[in-house]
Amino acid sequence: MWEYTDLVKEHFLNPRNVGEVENASGTGDVGSLACGDALKLTIKVDENGVITDAKFKTFGCASAIASSSALTEMVKGMTLDEAAKITNEDIADFLGGLPKEKMHCSVMGREALEAAIADYRGMALPMAEGEIVCECFGVTDLEIIRAINESNLRSVEEITNFTKAGGGCGKCEDRLREILQQTVSGSKLEWIKPMEKPKRMTTLQKIKKIEEVLEREIRPGLRKDGGDIELLDVDGDFVSVSLRGACKSCSKSQTTIKEYVEKKLRELVLDTLIVEEN
């Protein structure tokens, strides 16, 4: 069970401003069903640029709902310029704090607010102009850099906690580490370079590395014989692959998997990997 503050529980059980503002001046739509959380924020802005009304619809856990509710309470009565300055930390603080694994819920709130303001102003989302780093959750480098700076993030895990980047397939982990290094060194903090080859790898790191080795070391050989190989899944040490083309009907396919593919992957990625054909 999560240790939620009383304020989080209160906003979750009695959420304020649920629904959609009629004839909204701006709408912010972030997240998706597959991601496990999503937020649609609608705001009404008067002629003086003051937010007179804000409503939300949220799919997600208790802290996602509480963050959305808090956000709508915070922005009502603010000018757009004031609202634009709200950070995810402000939302979390309003609720008396969030568990660190749930910080991305507050980030979702801030993103929805930015999207709604940009929509009202007829502008493109500044953060959306960055380069997409995490494809699973559509997180850009600008969003990541901002989270690193605003929340003093110092590890890839923290970046995932705050932005969700890297929390899906994990292919972007190396890029996240790079961004973290650049951003942190830019802010004059000491940065210790991570070890070249980690002894333990996350599944996400494994997938990336395995794909790399397949592409560089294994596919060229198989393609010469009219075959190919596809990576289906990585679960713990189990690597599930499928042989394609000429390899599929080859009587030596089991030998190819065990003697060639598994051997290479154990040598170059992790010596505990077990390759299975599906």
């Binding site: 959380d37 997600g60 856990c61 208790a62 694994e101 910080m103 995932t160 906690n161 929390g167 899906g168």
Partner: peptide
Amino acid sequence: LHMNRYNICASSGSACTSGSL
């Protein structure tokens, strides 16, 4: 958590925590 309000105890297969969503 809504069920918890009524003291109804059950489980979920969902895991809304970053890192394993």
